[in-house]
């Protein structure tokens, strides 16, 4: 498999491969912060356009390509928030066409937030994950869960509360 550096130094097809490799991560980054699939797609387009324009300046000795790309993503997001509109200067310079998203594309971007939640849930300690799944997804009562998990109701409540707090912190929804 070619490295990110090789893809960035390669031809147009190599850059498309670089995009495919990092699309989900950048889309997810923006989606988490703006909460809208359309805006996340727009911000992602500008991020990759900037990376394309600046890829010859990427220096692997100063850090990996992922960190470099996320630096660009953060910069695009903060400048867009400051200006109150999604930046599009580089896309204009590169004569890129605006994105037109249909419902299917929006749904596919929105999946990313579910995937992030699922991943965060999987990373919880087993006892908390089972308590959160049982209470929030399967909608069991605390008493039923206490029986299933062979512990007291107050322990279940504590696990659910700790689990949700950890999820909120991980998903950035408690800011």
């Amino acid at each position: 498999m070619r490295t990110d550096t090789e893809l960035l130094q390669g031809d147009a097809r190599a850059y498309a491969a670089f995009y495919r490799r990092h699309e989900d991560a950048v889309l997810g980054f923006h989606l988490k912060r703006v909460g809208s699939a359309e805006l996340a797609a727009d911000l992602t387009a500008e991020t990759f356009a900037r990376a394309l324009e600046g890829r010859r300046r990427f220096d692997p000795r100063r850090g990996n390509a992922g960190a470099w790309l996320f630096g660009i993503a953060r910069n695009v997001l903060s400048r867009s928030l400051e200006r109150g509109r999604v930046e599009n200067e580089v896309r204009q310079r590169l004569a890129m066409q605006p994105l037109e998203l249909d419902d299917h594309a929006i749904a596919r971007i929105d999946e990313l937030s579910d995937e992030a939640a699922q991943q965060a849930l999987d990373e919880l300690p087993e006892d908390q994950a089972r308590a959160v799944r049982g209470r929030v997804i399967d909608e069991y009562g605390y008493d039923e869960l206490a029986e299933q998990l062979a512990c007291s109701e107050s322990v279940v409540r504590q696990r659910v509360s700790r689990g949700l707090r950890a999820l909120r912190a991980e998903l950035g929804t408690d800011e």
Binding site: A12, Y19, E23
Partner: peptide, 20 residues
């Protein structure tokens, strides 16, 4: 397949234009 195939095509096209 990517989530935004249209963006992938546009980026490839823009990269080709930059190469030219």
């Amino acid at each position: 397949m990517t989530r935004l195939p249209e963006l992938e095509r546009e980026l490839q096209r823009a990269a080709e234009a930059l190469e030219r």
